[in-house]
């Protein structure tokens, strides 16, 4: 048994697959085995339509696999009712989306506090936790700014703070640098590096070679087949990294 085996897994996929009923029936993810241990920084790379989003949605409990077994943080979630899956999603997973998904009429602080509404955080503890999360992503000076007054990088940092405020077991990121310029993207990736260094488990989907290079571990997905290793496609000319 290696030292790595002693670290408990956060994600354990065993023969998980996803088929969308047709016609025509489409297998977006073939039977897949994947283990992500606590503190891992995993990047999933692959071309468009390869099944990246399907995998992320399954991992994020936003979708149910057609078959196979999925254990999240030690809990077998495959057969859980939707009510329990929702609670796990709110309590153990943090999401960062490419499109930020911030509420435009609420301040950065209020957007971060939104994540605490559904997971039972006492109202008295929310503000301090949200401020701490914003401080963690370097935005303690922008707590009362509306998203419309923030730069793209700042918006994504607010989204990261919102994902972190519930202290999740897993941070799932879907193309987090997709809408950012290269400089801003690099700063955001440095933030992810620091979070990883602090012990946070991160699974990220990206096209970006630079993002993939920063990761501790890369898996490639192609036509719904997952394989360990590989390298990211070079980004199209002019596209943000």
């Amino acid at each position: 048994m290696s030292a790595e085996d002693l670290v408990p897994p956060v994600i354990e996929l065993a023969a998980v697959h996803r088929t969308y009923p047709g016609p025509p029936e489409v297998t977006a993810l073939h039977p897949t085995n994947l283990t992500v241990r606590r503190g891992d920084y995993l990047v999933v790379v692959g071309p468009s339509g390869s099944g990246k989003s399907t995998l992320l949605n399954l991992l994020g409990l936003l979708d149910r696999p057609t078959g196979g077994s999925y254990r999240l943080d030690g809990v077998d979630v495959s057969g859980l009712p939707e009510r329990d899956r929702t609670a796990l999603r709110g309590g153990r997973i943090g999401f960062v989306f490419q499109a930020f998904h911030l509420l435009p009429h609420r301040t950065a602080l209020e957007n971060v506090m939104l994540a605490q509404i559904y997971n039972g955080t006492p109202r008295s503890a929310r503000r301090a936790a949200a401020r701490a999360a914003l401080s963690q992503v370097g935005l303690d000076h922008r707590t009362h700014a509306l998203p419309t007054t923030l730069s793209g990088g700042e918006r994504q940092r607010v989204a990261v703070a919102r994902a972190l405020v519930t202290a999740p077991a897993l941070l799932l990121c879907d193309e987090p640098t997709g809408n950012l310029d290269s400089t801003t993207a690099r700063r955001l990736l440095e933030l992810f590096d620091s979070l990883h260094a602090a012990g946070l488990t991160i699974v990220m989907i990206t096209h970006s070679a630079e993002v993939a290079r920063r990761a501790q571990r890369i898996v490639t997905i192609s036509d719904g087949m997952l394989r360990e290793g590989g390298r990211a496609e070079p980004a199209p000319a002019g596209a943000p990294t």
Binding site: A87, G90, N119
Partner: peptide
């Protein structure tokens, strides 16, 4: 800094009257 996860995961998600 060390990432510390809160293990007090609620059994179910809630929405209080004041929050609603």
């Amino acid at each position: 800094m060390r990432w510390r996860r809160d293990r007090r995961v609620p059994e179910r998600s809630t929405l209080g009257v004041r929050d609603l």
